[in-house]
Write a protein that binds this DNA or RNA. Structure first.
Lengths: 254, 254
DNA sequence: CGCTTAATTGAAATGGTTCAATGCCTGTGG
DNA sequence: CCACAGGCATTGAACCATTTCAATTAAGCG
């Protein structure tokens, strides 16, 4: 228990409760030592080996050998899961926000085919897979929660397939922004005036939407010109949500 | 138990053992009344409500209300899971071959956002979700098998994302053909001379690869001209597997 | 046998890429 | 405090992979 591999970079004294905790499955399952909702309640956290980690922005922080036996969850910051192509291109499969598993597949298997890069500085937490499995196997309602997480991830992947296969650059970019803002809102990370910390570079958006960063720049400029949002200094402020949603095309099975 | 909803179309006297049985998870879990490997062995099949169904080619055969409580598995024939877009386009998310769940998500939830169409005539089988869950929840090794199915499905979705986001028409089409043939080979559906029943129309390939059927026609002609395969009369014969694999680009995380 | 669906082919149009040049900002080192 | 390098964003022009449009033939199907 408590396998203390250091995933990468330096350690860090992380504050106990992090932005991701409010929506983190590990927290609601009372399996996280730090993020427990109710510190008085009976907790299973001490039965699950766990550890914290930290990665600087732009660093790759999940490697084959490191996730072999560990299930990582993001506590704060953004990450991106991607694959590299022989020609030097890459495709981002998903952005990972605070309170999310690096990948739901890693809950059940250490086999990994994606790279994960920290977009901003990232605090994460790793759980011993065997311990974790044992804890949820016993409790059906825990299992239902994990199934839900998994289904959501699959649904998001399917939505991306539709975007990449059948929708224009404008629609893809608008969808991505809407999806991210919606998820951030669920985590209470949108401030009352509608602005959000938005660490993505244009090349991230390009890699996620299957476009070039040159074209992303052009589309974003056009969106700004139309007054849909403001985006500068790593802060995004939606100005005309309805128009943005229109640009994303009809909601195709949200 | 045994909820006897008729999913659609007419009933049919299906032969007990079908092409999909050899690789069907329900069969290896001994949960299928018909497809059991070992008829003498102790089986849990009578604990799980189940029924057969049949759908004619080109029919939609999975609707919201119908999968609410049922987990469908294809026994013979091909199906396609897709979503419709407001502009009349559609995107096929996956082809479903004999021995596969309609969608792994349906194992855990009846909420559905895709349509499923029979590509060729399809025999399928439905299992009561509650019964099914109860049976696998108790047995960890069953659960591992289901997790594996789920991970495979997700991995295939991720591969499609990469194809649609970053690869050319040729690469997408070649990848699709290779993937299908590989899966068919695993089911022993490739005859010794290398030919397979291949019920897809060009518009299926187009809808799956995010292209137009016009362009699919051009690429397929070019492939044929180069002698990579023959394809006519719903039969595909790979002639130059190595060259086809080259056209698909490097294997990006198979 | 006629009617609809599927496949083929060519020509024109286009959404997005590629290439290239410029400016900006940030961090770094002298 | 300035010079310089590297990453990031912007803009315009040329290019190209794929779409769109259109016309023709071939293939199922009742």
């Amino acid at each position: 228990m408590m396998p203390q591999q250091q995933l990468s970079c330096r350690t860090f004294d992380a504050p106990a409760v992090m932005p991701g905790c409010s929506t983190c499955p590990l927290s609601s399952l009372e399996l996280c030592v730090e993020g427990r909702r109710n510190r008085e309640s009976e907790s299973h956290a001490q039965n699950v080996g766990q550890n914290t980690g930290f990665a600087l922005a732009r660093r790759v922080f999940s490697r084959q050998e490191e996730v072999r036996d560990l299930v990582p969850v993001i506590c704060s910051g953004w990450a991106a899961a991607y694959v590299n192509l022989p020609n030097g291109n890459r495709q981002i499969l998903s952005f990972i926000l605070p309170g999310e598993f690096l990948s739901a597949s890693l809950i059940f298997s250490g086999a990994q085919y994606v790279w994960v890069e920290a977009v901003s500085d990232v605090h994460y937490r790793t759980f011993d897979r065997t311990d974790f499995m044992r804890e949820i196997a016993g409790r059906p309602q825990s299992f239902a929660l994990i199934a839900e997480v998994w289904i959501k991830e699959k649904r998001r992947a399917d939505r991306l397939i539709v975007d990449l296969g059948r929708r224009t650059a404008e629609e893809r970019i608008a969808s991505l922004l809407i999806d991210l803002v919606d998820r951030l809102r669920a985590r209470d990370l949108v401030s009352p005036d509608g602005s959000v910390e938005f660490p993505l570079r244009q090349h991230h958006i390009a890699d996620a939407t299957g476009l070039t960063s040159v074209h992303v720049s052009k589309v974003l400029s056009e969106f700004r010109r139309r007054g849909l949002f403001e985006l500068s200094e790593r802060v995004l402020t939606i100005k005309d949500a309805a128009a943005l949603r229109r640009s994303a095309g009809e909601p195709h099975s949200r």
